[in-house]
Simulated assay, not measured.
Amino acid sequence: MRRSPAAAGEDPFSVVMRLAVLLSGGASPALAWQHLAAGGDPTLRSASAAADRGGDVAAVLRAAGGSWPDIAAVYAVAVETGAPLAETLRTVAVALREASEVSAEVTVALAEPAATARLLAWLPVGGIPLGAILGFDTLATLFGDPVGRLCLAGGAALIVISRIWCRRLIRSAQPPPRVPGLEAELWAVALSAGASADRARAAITAGSDAVAPAGSSPVDATLDLAARAGVPAAELLRADAWSARHRARTEGREAAARLSTRLLIPLGVCTLPAFLVLAVAPLMLGLLRSGFVP
């Protein structure tokens, strides 16, 4: 059965861009959310209800999961610091969409080596019918012969080790869930609204877990540079955010390239030996038992 658009859920970034247009056209936040909720999306309906009663819209968006928490952080910081909501949402939505595209690009790059690893994981199991094709009862050897049972246990253990090893390699190559440059974007929003550094940190800490402790974040170095150079920190922070997204794209491609090579290690150490003990060894054992080999 085909799902309705409301059931499928709205694209958060498209919603934010439409919200920015409605706010730019003079609509109040409550009215803008009401228009967006007319399609029946549960998240938008909850956000509209919160806006109508003057509640915390950011909390509703944060609870929706997916990409909504990142948008909720921007929304919360803009409301708390008094930044122009329409302009802020329009600017940051583009940045967040770019970050989402970076994550998707890295995921696509990792898909090929991951699919190859999953395919090769079936190689030992697929080798078992080889004996039957050659006229030998490989299964009877594996389950009925003492040496065959040892081969079966050893091959099964190697397969399990190989799969766990490959999964860990693939998981370690996945991009981090945090949006690259989000902290810098949030700081740029807060400082552009004229908030002090302390107020900006408080607003960002309340709206998102993307902020690092004071003194341990690259944002602090950028703020120090802006203070020493006497230039607006917001533009430097937006440049930092762009650099973070560019760096994430480069590192993701490098991780995908390294993954293709690293997956050869469990293949050589576990998968191929598993094929030997599950397919070749029972075949040779069957030949010995049948007297074909003197």
Rank of each mutant, 00 (worst) to 15 (best):
L285P: 07
A229W: 03
A93H: 04
G135D: 10
A239V: 09
E254L: 14
L259H: 04
A239C: 13
A239F: 00
Q174D: 09
I159P: 00
V219I: 10
G230S: 13
A255S: 15
G286C: 04
H35Q: 15
S217P: 08
A73Q: 11
C151L: 08
G286W: 00
V160C: 11
L272C: 12
G286N: 07
A244D: 13
T43M: 05
L123S: 09
A63T: 10
G131P: 03
A274Q: 01
L278N: 01
P146N: 14
D220L: 02
D56K: 09
H246N: 07
A32R: 06
L120H: 00
R3G: 13
A115F: 06
S243Q: 12
R167N: 14
A78I: 11
V211W: 01
M284C: 14
E254F: 12
A86T: 12
L85E: 07
T138D: 02
V92K: 06
S103R: 11
V269G: 09
F275C: 06
P176F: 09
L236Q: 01
P177T: 13
G148W: 00
S172Q: 14
D240N: 09
S196W: 02
T261K: 13
S217E: 05
A121W: 00
A214T: 11
R247G: 13
L152K: 06
S48Q: 10
A99I: 01
A51Y: 02
V102T: 08
I161M: 12
V147M: 13
E251G: 14
A49W: 01
P29S: 13
G9A: 08
E185Q: 15
A64H: 03
S192W: 00
R262V: 10
L85Y: 02
P294D: 05
I170M: 12
G154M: 03
G9H: 08
A83I: 04
P218S: 12
M1C: 12
A227D: 11
A184T: 05
C151E: 03
L36M: 11
E80Y: 00
S28T: 14
D209S: 15
T91A: 15
L139S: 12
A115R: 11
P69M: 11
V211S: 14
L236G: 00
A226C: 08
G154T: 10
Q174P: 04
V108Y: 01
R258A: 13
D209H: 07
R2H: 06
E235Y: 05
L120S: 03
L236T: 00
V15E: 02
A233E: 01
A210F: 03
A239P: 01
A32W: 02
G148M: 06
I170D: 05
L263V: 10
P218G: 07
T205I: 06
G39K: 08
E80G: 10
A241R: 03
